[in-house]
Design a binder for these strands. Structure first.
Length: 476
RNA sequence: GGCCCCAUCGUCUAACGGUUAGGACACCACUCUUUCACAGUGGUAAUACGGGUUCGAUUCCCGUUGGGGUCACCA
């Protein structure tokens, strides 16, 4: 028998930004679809009218596009499918697999309070399941509000999870969940199953936190007589403290990383390696490699801690490997945010000079900005430390540099003559080259890290460089 | 608390039941470099604990401990 072409979906609810955990779930779905020649569907689960917004939907779509995760179908909006959801609920009711429950929220709340754990683990006592037919008719005639509850079968519910292997539950541990509210709108678990059936989803790849929903949903699939898809529950992403990643851990939205100057390719690469590894110690992987090597079975069972430092390292690898022309648009975006206008000046040479040391494009742009205009340089702690350590020698060294550089004309202001002049002066005055160079670097950039000093001087330009050195030599 | 999931360096991870338990980030040292970085080389660092099964357990089984998830007319 032939396997149907895989159909997967990413189904965020538009109640907030695109979380990195959600982004990774989307990425795994996308990788699986690309790998198998399947279809990646985007579904927006907006049945919670109170919390869903159009703005959130846009942020999520933008985030997916930024990451390069193109969907093949959709976005389809769950809220538009209310009639089908209701139809499925009523069908279960008609078939005796669900029942009307007239209990009010207040009644349920009271019962919950009286239960052993203050509501946790509370199970509905099925009092409405046993209502006589004439009583139901009486309440219906009286127009009393009711919900539709699914009658959870007393049987084993297990499945072969693609990442966890066999997971077993039992219906007796599960509540008779409400599937249709008294206002006839569907509850999440029904809407999801109804949609996944209608969309012919074959593989449900989602977060670990849905494991406890899966037995409920499988029971619904069975009751609806639909084939059960393959489930793959990917582990959570945690913060450094081992708790579920959330706002208090800092940046958790994909947009935050975009703003910080993380490249989409690096973000995608990093996220793919959180809970998944291709083997052979491979880490920097192009899109095609990611797709070729991806399998659900290789996904880790345990949660992964999000390490921003490694993300930045990886981003630096991508930045170093990219051509200045490719980086330029992004750098210019950050420059304008910094209020810097390069005017007619080409910034390609500056990008090339600065990119091996930058870990984010925003940091790269800051470095470019300082080279465009050294007066922007802010003294870093390490730069400050160097000045203090050298004492009077700092200014003396700068005086030597100025004396060496002034004779060089505008036309000869290139790395080689600059180096020759500095070297000659240092030799003549028995100055160690390190002591001659480092003060220039600090004066020009405020930092102790940059491209070679002669290249730095060339990139900054004669007039600006000399002016800055004179100012620094005067102690300004 | 019930139910469910999970457990290799600080972190991300590799290891047909047989390896000096490998790689990467971070950290330290050295080399290279006019300085800094990049890079290269080396180093510190892990199989949670206890029982089995086996000639032999990181690996299979059970238990303990620890961590996580979830228990709504939210999604």
């Amino acid at each position: 028998m032939s396997q149907p072409t895989p159909r997967v979906r990413f189904a965020p609810s538009p109640t907030g930004y695109l979380h990195v955990g959600g982004a990774r779930t989307a990425l795994f779905n996308w990788l699986f679809a690309r790998k198998t020649g399947g279809t990646f569907v985007l579904r927006i689960e907006d049945t919670d009218q109170a919390r869903s917004t159009e703005a959130h939907t846009q942020v999520i779509l933008d985030g997916l596009r930024w990451l390069g995760l193109a969907w093949d179908e959709g976005p389809v909006f769950q809220g538009a499918e209310g009639a089908r959801h209701r139809g499925d609920a009523e069908r279960l009711l008609a078939e005796g697999k669900a029942y009307r429950c007239f209990c009010t929220k207040a009644e349920l709340e009271a019962a919950r309070k009286l239960s052993p754990n203050g509501g946790d683990g509370f199970k509905y006592d099925r009092r409405c399941l046993h209502l006589p037919a004439d009583e139901i008719a009486r309440r219906m005639a009286a127009d009393l509000p009711f919900v539709i509850r699914f009658q959870m079968p007393d049987e084993e519910i297990a499945w072969d999870d693609a990442v966890h292997d066999r997971i077993r539950w039992h219906g007796r541990d599960l509540d008779d969940l409400v599937i249709l509210r008294s206002d006839k709108t569907p509850i999440y678990n029904l809407a999801v199953v109804s949609d996944d059936i209608a969309m012919r989803i074959t593989h449900v790849i989602r977060g670990d936190d849905h494991i406890s929903n899966t037995p409920k949903q499988i029971a619904l699939y069975r009751a609806l007589g639909a084939p059960i898809p393959v489930f793959a529950h990917v582990p959570m992403i945690l913060g450094a403290d081992g708790k579920k990643l959330s706002k208090r851990h800092g940046a958790t939205a994909v947009g935050d990383y975009q703003d910080k100057g993380i490249l989409p390719a690096a973000m995608r690469n990093f996220l793919a390696l959180l809970g998944w590894a291709p083997g052979e110690d491979r880490e920097i992987l192009a899109e095609a490699d990611l797709i070729a090597l991806f399998t659900l079975e290789a996904i880790q069972k345990k949660p992964a801690v999000f390490d921003p430092t490694k993300l930045e390292w990886m981003n630096g690898q991508y930045i170093s490997a990219m051509a200045a022309t490719v980086l330029e648009p992004e750098v210019r975006r950050h420059l304008s945010r910094l209020g810097v206008d390069p005017g007619d000046r080409s910034i390609l040479a500056i990008i090339d000079a600065a990119k091996p040391r930058a870990r984010t494009t925003s940091n790269l742009a800051e470095r470019v900005a300082v080279r465009l205009d050294p007066t922007r340089a802010a003294l870093e702690p390490k730069g400050q430390a160097l000045i203090e350590k050298m004492g009077p020698a700092y200014r003396a060294s700068l005086e030597h540099a100025i004396a060496a550089l002034e004779p060089i004309g505008e036309a000869d202001w290139t790395p080689e003559p600059i180096f020759a002049a500095l070297k000659a002066r240092a030799d003549a005055h028995a100055l160690k080259l390190g002591d001659a160079m480092q003060p220039i670097r600090v004066a020009l950039t405020g930092d102790t890290v940059s491209e070679p000093v002669n290249e730095l001087l060339a990139v900054v330009g004669r007039a600006a460089a000399l002016a800055t050195l004179r100012r620094a030599a005067r102690g300004e």
